[in-house]
Amino acid sequence: MNDNVIVVGGGVIGLTTAIVLAEQGRSVRVWTREPAGRTTSAVAGGLWWPYRIEPEAQVGDWSLRSLRIYEELAARSGETGVRMVEGVQAGTQLDELGDWAAQVPGLRAARAGEAGAYAGEGLWARLPLIDMPTYLGWLGERLLAAGGSVEERALGQLSEAVDEASVVVNCSGLGARELVADPAVRPVRGQLVVVENPGITTWFTAADPASHATTYFLPQPYGLLLGGTADEDDWSLEPDPAVAEEIVKRCAQIRPEIAGARVLEHRVGLRPARDAVRLDREILPGGGVLVHNYGHGGAGVTVAWGCAEEAARLVGGAAA
């Protein structure tokens, strides 16, 4: 057995974890069923915010660590795809959030008119908004520069990786249902619509945890991204035209100019949800190390760097 690391999963969690390990000097290979551009991460909205993810105590730390890194990456937005953009989290108040909120620079109550036609309470913030296709490409290049590699390889069982490496990090997302027989990880389907941007420069989100329908628009370089849905245990990757129409309608109630915007693309992604993120370590019978890092739901981008650093700590003293 070689003293190397295999990271299973090539989405934002897997790539970020692989980078942290490779930059610590380890020999890292990423095994992924499909290239990063076809993972769920590629269709994510890309806004930093701890959304639909537990456990809350750790999520705050993971999110803030990631926030600091994204703030640095935003200085090279053309290269990384990370920008700091202002917008409104509607229906949210500071006293509803965890302790982490006090460490988000500039987070405050929104003023009248800052959220278009939305007249309710909300928070104004300047947060990382990430162009995911660009960012995933940049992550791949950073991994290669650190000496890591990416291999397209579909696993039937996790033991295939365990047989080849002294350390395996399981970042397989929804794939963990089969790879480690974990029925607790399940899909939460998200449908989005990309339209030509009619001149909107700020983002808006209104997410009701009790509802399957969410309302948000995110100005990306390729267009205005409209959402969305949160359909639990729905495996369909086919866009529903009626749902798309409702998404546009909800967003246009906030910014009327969206109603006439030309539709460019429809997207569907399956968030790998779990009651709580699984981030732990096993010592295998043969002495190898298996670290799990999956179940991030709709906040994989938000916690990616914090979870990657924690996963690297769990790898710990395994041979490098």
Rank of each mutant, 00 (worst) to 15 (best):
I19W: 12
A22K: 06
A22M: 09
Q24V: 08
G25I: 05
S27E: 14
S27G: 08
R29V: 14
W31I: 13
E34F: 04
P35V: 13
R38T: 11
R38C: 07
R38H: 14
T39M: 08
T40E: 13
A44V: 08
G45V: 07
P50E: 01
Y51M: 00
Y51E: 00
I53F: 00
E54I: 02
A57D: 15
G60N: 01
W62I: 00
R65V: 05
S66M: 03
S66Y: 03
R68N: 07
I69P: 05
E72L: 09
L73C: 03
R76F: 14
V82T: 02
R83Y: 05
Q93V: 05
L94I: 14
G98C: 04
A102R: 06
P105L: 02
G106N: 07
L107A: 04
R108P: 06
A112W: 07
G113F: 07
G120I: 04
G122W: 04
W124D: 07
W124S: 13
A125K: 02
A125R: 01
P128K: 06
D131E: 15
M132R: 14
P133W: 07
Y135L: 12
R142H: 09
L143G: 10
A145E: 15
G148C: 12
S149Q: 12
E151A: 13
R153I: 06
G156I: 04
G156T: 12
Q157S: 14
